[in-house]
Write a protein that binds this DNA or RNA. Structure first.
Length: 363
DNA sequence: AACCCGTGGCC
DNA sequence: TGGCCAAGGGT
């Protein structure tokens, strides 16, 4: 007979939690349907900790599709942790440009240097030691320990959250259910093939137990899934209350000197930390509609349409001003001239690429 | 604990 | 079109 335990976990007639029995089913499915990804070792081969680490950092809050090309480039430029540690951080920022969450790039470099200087150039093989490295949090430490070092670690990412919430019919928002999710994930994690199990959960979440329209009909874990049985697979997980995204305004100045353009480097920490930008005003509720924040006194033309960009927690609308300066105009303090042709090679974030594109279009 | 931190693709 | 979402970490 079937009953519910106090945690809400389904139990079989033997009293064994279904999650334990589910692992072999999941691994069998993984062996047939695993995605081929550039950072994955072939079946049966052990993964390179450096490759696993690099991919996991890039994949933090970032889609597989966006990561692939960056990963291939990084691995070609810096094939091992020593090479990455020896690279100038500016070069890493440039190659990271466009991928977002730029503190990851700075931490990537810091982590590589720590591994070289403090661990003899080899990644530590325990979850606790990995967790102590810059840019490696609970998820990434567990993932590397499991995938690269074959250790039984409880790997919980957004996919695992979603799969477990559905499988157990948890009706609370994920943020409130974290402790229970952790308990259930721990109970479900097998001792054998921990890396494959972790990646199987991610593949399941990415291809079958997707956020929208999950493909329960072909799901290897459909049996015993509370959400599936109750028809609530498209309702769970319940979403939490989202904070409103305020609008911030500002100005940005695209100032040319012949074939060069004026740029500066943002402070190392905070939004777009360490990245290159065109000079401009602060971003606030008021903005700079008249272009008073111009770094050089000049005749500026205002582009007909502002550049808009969505960040995680606010929306930005930038008024773009364009000016042309005489050949020998010196760069103001904190700014420098760079060839327009070389902008692609700068550590230019997506927002600033939008600005450059708007200038090319209108000005 | 609650914010802060990018970007592109999806429907 | 706009809100949602993606292999989270730092503070």
């Amino acid at each position: 007979m079937t009953r519910k335990s106090s945690t809400g976990a389904e139990t079989s007639k033997t009293g064994v939690p279904r999650e334990i029995a589910a692992a072999p089913r999941l691994l069998e499915w993984y062996d047939r349907h695993r995605r081929a990804l550039p950072w994955r070792a072939p079946p049966g081969e052990s993964a390179d900790p450096y490759a696993v680490w690099l991919s996991e950092i890039m994949l933090q809050q970032t889609t597989v599709a966006a990561v692939k090309a960056y990963y291939v480039t990084f691995l070609a430029l810096w094939p091992d942790v020593a090479a990455l540690a020896a690279a100038p951080v500016d070069e890493i920022m440039k190659r990271w440009a466009g991928l977002g969450y730029y503190s990851r790039a700075r931490n990537l470099h810091a982590c590589a240097q720590t591994v070289v200087a403090g661990h003899g150039g080899r990644f530590p093989g325990t979850e606790a030691a990995l967790r102590a490295l810059p840019g490696i949090g609970p998820y990434t430490a567990a993932a590397i320990a499991a995938i690269a070092f074959d250790q039984r670690a409880v790997v919980i990412d957004g996919n695992v959250d979603r799969v477990i919430v559905r499988r157990h019919g948890i009706e609370q928002p994920i943020a409130l259910a974290k402790p229970e999710i952790r308990r259930l994930a721990d109970a479900a994690t097998p001792a054998g093939r921990p890396g494959d199990y972790a990646q199987a959960m991610m593949d399941l979440g990415a291809t079958i137990c997707t956020p929208r329209k999950p493909a329960c009909v072909i799901c290897p874990l459909a049996e015993g899934c509370v959400a599936r049985i109750s028809g609530r697979q498209e309702v769970l997980p319940v979403k939490g209350v989202k904070a409103a995204r305020p609008l911030r305004l500002g100005s940005v100045f695209y100032i040319r000197r012949g074939t060069e353009v004026l740029v500066r480097t943002r402070p190392p920490k905070g939004l777009l930390g360490g990245m290159t930008e065109f000079p401009g005003s602060a971003w606030d509720a008021v903005g700079d509609p008249e272009g008073k924040a111009a770094p050089l006194a000049a005749i500026h033309r205002r582009l007909p349409a502002p550049v808009e960009h969505g960040f995680t927690h606010f929306e930005l609308r930038l008024t773009v001003f364009v000016a042309d300066m005489p050949r020998k105009t010196p760069a103001p303090d904190g700014c420098r001239w760079v060839p327009e042709e070389g902008l692609d090679g700068e550590a230019l974030p997506g927002l600033m690429r939008k600005v450059a594109a708007a200038v090319n279009l209108f000005g």
